[in-house]
């Protein structure tokens, strides 16, 4: 421990650039491990990790579980019922359970912003935020940055656009903090009422014209549009969203430029992104998935592993 400034990974807002750099670099080291025939290393043998999921998640949970197992940690999975969360129960009991089970690390996904920070104040275990409501999703942003770095060889000076429902996105906020710390420029694009108030104070630009944004950007990070927001007076219709913000094949063809397409998943094919774009040459969406496992190994290793300098 002690390889990073902070004991926990709560968000990228308070993670220094130096640590982001280190996490990404170490991510590439583990990426090599994942390309080996035997994809397992003994780095975290004897460490106890609990995955606490208070909200449905498939890919983040599986990605963490894979990362933990490939580091030889002992893994416990815990999923809480939605009803206990909706009543506001659970946090205190969670704290006490982690104490009682003598866990070294808790990976937590929770629908309420701030819960990972609250948890970290009450437990000895290392807390890793796997998404807290509409606040942050730091491991997603780290894997996004690692994927950009893999593609471009750098982050500094790149122009990255985040497209979609920014207001309800934890992915956007973590990407904004991380990318800017690493020297990239960030523009947000989406329906104006889904751009949160005061976001410009974080140093980003806002442009609601997707075609201008495509012309500007080196890469687009396309956010999932929640279907439950469609047609309930927030996003009027799929066709209008596609028409003004959708990353369609036709739109990309019109621009005739090299641009990298990213998506944190799960995708609504045909809504925010066309299937042919998602599966096309410009997309690095599956690299993001693989890098997700590598970056989570990196995070776990740097927060829980042996001191710096020792071999993994």
């Amino acid at each position: 421990m002690g390889a990073l400034k902070n004991k926990h990974l709560i968000g990228l807002e308070h993670t220094p650039a130096r640590d982001i750099q280190k996490l990404i670099d170490t991510g590439f080291t583990f990426r090599e491990v994942l390309d080996r025939p035997i994809k397992k290393v003994p780095s975290l043998t004897g460490k106890n990790i609990v995955n606490l999921f208070f909200e449905n998640s498939t890919r983040t949970r599986i990605s963490f579980e894979l990362a933990e197992k490939r580091l030889s940690a002992d893994v416990t999975n815990f999923s809480a019922s939605a009803s206990s969360v909706s009543k506001g129960e659970g946090l205190k009991d969670t704290v006490q359970n982690i104490h009682a089970m003598k866990m070294d690390c808790a990976v937590m996904r929770h629908p309420v912003p701030g819960t990972c920070l609250q948890l970290s104040k009450f437990v000895d275990a290392v807390v890793i935020n796997a998404g807290d409501g509409t606040h942050e999703h730091p491991t997603q942003a780290l894997l996004d940055m690692m994927s950009i770095k893999e593609k471009f060889g750098k982050l500094k000076g790149l122009k990255i656009a985040i497209v979609g429902d920014i207001l309800h996105s934890r992915v956007a906020l973590s990407n904004i903090y991380g990318l800017q710390k690493m020297g990239a420029k960030v523009t947000l694009c989406g329906p104006p009422h889904l751009i949160p108030r005061g976001i410009q104070e974080l140093g980003v630009s806002v442009n609601t014209d997707i075609d201008e944004v495509i012309e500007w950007a080196d890469a687009l990070n396309v956010l999932r549009i929640q279907r439950e927001r469609m047609g309930v007076g927030i996003i009027p219709s799929v066709r209008e969203y596609r028409d003004f913000f959708g990353i369609t094949q036709e739109r990309l063809d019109n621009h005739k430029k090299e641009i990298v397409i990213m998506h944190p998943g799960p995708m609504n094919r045909g809504v925010e992104i066309d299937s042919s774009v998602a599966d096309g040459d410009q997309a690095i969406i599956l690299d993001q998935v693989l890098n997700g496992v590598a970056i989570r190994m990196s995070i776990l290793y740097l927060l829980l592993g042996p001191d710096e300098g020792e071999e993994s």
Partner: peptide, 15 residues
Amino acid sequence: NESSLSTRLGLPGNP
């Protein structure tokens, strides 16, 4: 309160 702080904290703002 809705402001850049509510945005930063990811909490729904009350304008």
